[in-house]
Amino acid sequence: MTAPEPYAGVTTHTPVRHHILSVLVENKAGVLARIAGLFARRGFNIYSLAVAPAEGHARFSRVTIVVDAESAPLEQIVGQLNKLVNVVDIKDLAPRDALERELLLATLPVDDGNRAAVLEVVANAAASIVDVNATSLSVVLAGTPHACDLLERALEGFSDVELQRTGRVALPRLTQTESL
C-alpha cells in the first residue's frame, strides 16, 4: 500500500500577508496577557506566538508573533504594541528577510500495513523518529514553516495522527534582500 495522495488543495497555515514581529519584553508577570489583551481588544489577529527567555538575559524574554497583516495595518499593530510599557523593542521582519524555524511533533499508530509508508514520509521530510513502541511512533521535525506544512499535509493521509506545532521563532537573515 502506498501513501495516500496528499490533499490536493492549498492548505496554507500562514495568512497571505503575514509579518513576523520579534518583540523583546521585560520578563514580568502579566506581560503575555498585556500583549494578548492588546491584540484582542484592537482586533488584530495572531497566527502564532512563541515565548522564551531572550539571549541570556533573565530580565527579558523574546516573543515571536506571526501577525496577520490583513487584520490591521502593520504600522498600527507595531505602534500600539510599542505603547506597552513592558515592550522594550520590536523588530518587524518581512518573511523574506527572516530566518524562520518551527518544531513539529506527531504521534501516529503504525502497523504492518502502513509502516513503510510512514517511514517514507518521515524520510522525505527529513524528520526523525524520536519515540517508538509496538503500535505507534513519534516523529519530530525542526524546520522551516513550509517544511512543517508539507509534513503535516503528508501526515493528514494517515488516521489518528496526534500532531502539535510550536509556532515559529525568527531572527533577521544575515543577508537582507534589497527592498524595492
Binding site: A29, G30, A33, R34, G37, L38, R41, V85, N86
Partner: peptide
C-alpha cells in the same frame, strides 16, 4: 484589578 484595567490604563503595577 490589574487584569481588569490592563486595557484602560497607560500601565499598572502590582
Amino acid at each position: 484589578i490589574t487584569g481588569i484595567t490592563m486595557g484602560i490604563t497607560k500601565h499598572n503595577f502590582l
